[in-house]
Write a protein that binds this DNA or RNA. Structure first.
Length: 266
DNA sequence: AACTGTCTCAACCGCATAGCG
DNA sequence: TCGCTATGCGGTTGAGACAGT
């Protein structure tokens, strides 16, 4: 037995939305706000399931959507974020105000994938296509654990961003994406990659995380009494702040800021 | 003009998980 | 603690637009 359907399919419309349906949905959300998607269709007089309403609103009707071509800067940001986060489209969308996860996912699949391939880069792994030394990592989702991206030329003398993700194909300790950022001096990426190919188990992941932050800090509890960072308190806590996403990629915003956006309804 | 192949993107589907009683 | 429901997410599909022949 499968799970029961999310709605009474016999009495719901499917497919493209009509102008009238859009108007009804917009009018209802303006009056009552988002939420209660299950009951919304009935209340709004729509013959749609709640999921469909939610998707239509989020991906198409929301007033804060940009709805234009992606800029070159957005392209590059998406590529960087994808190399760090993998196919976590909603997290990526959280970094691109006015863009939806669906839009970015489509754009990735239709444009950016091709762009990377034309550059000779595997869009799944963000490594050179002919880089056979990493063939074991050729998979649909990029290796989300311990990903580093090389700084651009002009960034090489600056800090180097390294991401530790405890949810990865090789370590499934935590059910939620838990990005832990550390900032360290520039180092030799090649060396580290070789080292990690040999390690590759949870214990080693934990060790490498522990080098930068204590457990409390890695959870974002940098003011906790449990903090036991051996490192200089100031710098380690600055790192912890970056781990919680305050300055992720220099954007200084909350990773999920779009979710907390106030609806700007007229 | 008609046909065919390709591309794009809105929408759907199913699963995971948070929240609640 | 358990079971159920609602919501969110990522993968996939398919209709329509467009380009090429």
């Amino acid at each position: 037995m499968g799970r029961s359907p999310c709605c009474e399919k016999a009495h719901t419309n499917k497919g493209a939305w009509t102008k009238e349906e859009d108007d009804r949905l917009i009018a209802y959300i303006r009056a009552h706000g988002e939420g209660c998607w299950r009951s919304l269709p009935k209340a709004a007089g729509l013959l749609r399931c709640g999921k469909s309403c939610r998707l239509r609103w989020i991906n198409y009707l929301r007033p804060d959507l940009k709805r234009g071509n992606f800029t070159e800067e957005e392209d590059e940001l998406i590529i960087k974020l994808h190399s760090l986060l993998g196919n976590k489209w909603s997290l990526i969308a959280g970094r691109l105000p006015g863009r939806t996860d669906n839009e970015i996912k489509n754009y990735w699949n239709t444009h950016i994938r091709r762009k990377l391939l034309s550059r000779g880069i595997d869009p799944a792994t963000h490594r050179p296509l002919n880089d056979s030394s990493h063939h074991n990592q050729l998979q649909e989702s990029p290796p989300a654990a311990t990903i580093s991206f090389a700084p651009k030329q002009e960034e090489k003398d600056n800090v180097f961003v390294e991401v530790k993700d405890s949810k990865s194909p090789t370590s499934e300790r935590c059910p939620d994406l838990n990005l832990e950022l550390t900032i360290s001096p520039p180092h030799h990426q090649e060396e580290e990659e070789e080292e990690e190919e040999e390690e590759g188990d949870d214990e080693e992941d934990l060790k490498s995380i522990g080098r930068s932050l204590c457990f409390a800090c890695s959870l974002g509890l940098q003011n906790s009494k449990d903090c036991s960072c051996a490192l200089d308190a100031t710098t380690s806590h600055a790192n912890a702040a970056s781990a919680t996403g305050y300055d992720f990629l220099g954007l200084k915003t909350n990773p999920l800021d779009y979710r907390s956006m106030q609806m700007k309804l007229n």
